[in-house]
Computed example of a mutant assay.
Amino acid sequence: MAVYQVLFHVSDNETWPKAVTNIENFLKDVGPSGATIEVVANAAAVMTYYNQEKAELLERMQQLAAIGVKFTACRNALRAHQLDEQAKPDFVEVVPGGITEIVAKQAAGYLYIKP
């Protein structure tokens, strides 16, 4: 069982590189089985999931997803930015509302980090 439950919140595109590096470094310290990690992207941050110019960053996200990090996108933000939910990367799960997801995870005991 994971020692930590951690929720990373990303709401702008500029924060993504720092957030991904934070997650990678955290997992180096605790190991992949040492944490359950979810990343909630809302507001403008959802656009990075669709930005092919960020291929290297998306590859790092996909590698993290492959070892159990959950990446989510706020459906409200996808709609606000006119992004096709069906065109998102396979490793991204859509949640109805990013803020609602954050509140639910915090209520479930997740530690909140906003890089």
Rank of each mutant, 00 (worst) to 15 (best):
Q82T: 05
L111R: 10
A80C: 12
I23A: 13
L58D: 09
A55F: 06
S11L: 05
L64D: 09
E14S: 08
G34A: 03
I113A: 14
Y50N: 08
I67C: 10
I102A: 05
T72L: 01
E101Q: 15
F71W: 13
M1S: 08
A2S: 13
A66F: 03
T48I: 15
Q62C: 07
E24V: 15
Y49L: 06
Q63C: 15
A107K: 10
A55M: 08
G98N: 06
Q82K: 11
Y4A: 00
Q62T: 12
V92N: 12
K88T: 15
I37V: 02
Q63T: 07
Y50M: 15
L57H: 03
T72I: 15
V40R: 01
V94Y: 08
A44D: 15
E85M: 02
L57T: 04
Q106N: 06
Q86V: 09
T72A: 15
T36F: 09
Q63A: 03
A87R: 15
N13L: 10
R79G: 11
V40Q: 14
Q63V: 08
A45N: 09
G109R: 07
D12W: 09
T36H: 07
T48G: 12
A43E: 04
V46R: 15
H9V: 02
S33E: 08
Y50T: 01
N25D: 04
K114W: 02
V30R: 01
V30M: 06
G34E: 11
T21C: 04
G98Q: 12
N13H: 05
V69M: 02
A77I: 09
I99R: 08
M47I: 14
L57C: 01
P32Y: 10
E53F: 09
M47C: 11
L27E: 09
A87L: 06
S33N: 07
E85Q: 05
Q82F: 05
G97F: 04
T15N: 01
D84G: 10
E56V: 13
A43Q: 15
A2T: 14
W16T: 00
A108H: 08
Y4L: 09
E53D: 05
A77M: 12
V46H: 06
L58W: 04
I37F: 08
G68W: 12
L27D: 03
Y112A: 07
Y110K: 06
E53H: 11
F26A: 14
E14V: 10
H81T: 07
E85R: 04
R60S: 11
V103Y: 02
A35I: 09
K114M: 07
F26C: 04
D84A: 15
N51Q: 06
L58V: 12
Q86C: 13
Y4Q: 12
V95Y: 14
K28M: 10
Y50W: 03
E101N: 09
G109M: 14
L64V: 10
A65G: 01
T21P: 01
D84C: 14
E14K: 07
L111S: 10
V6L: 05
K54D: 00
T36L: 06
Y112Q: 04
Y112I: 03
A80Y: 01
V95K: 03
E93R: 08
D12P: 00
A35F: 04
I113R: 13
V10F: 03
E93M: 13
T36W: 14
A80F: 14
K54G: 00
A108G: 11
S33F: 13
T100H: 08
N25H: 10
Q82P: 01
Y49P: 14
L78Y: 12
R60M: 03
V40P: 06
T100P: 04
A104P: 00
V3A: 04
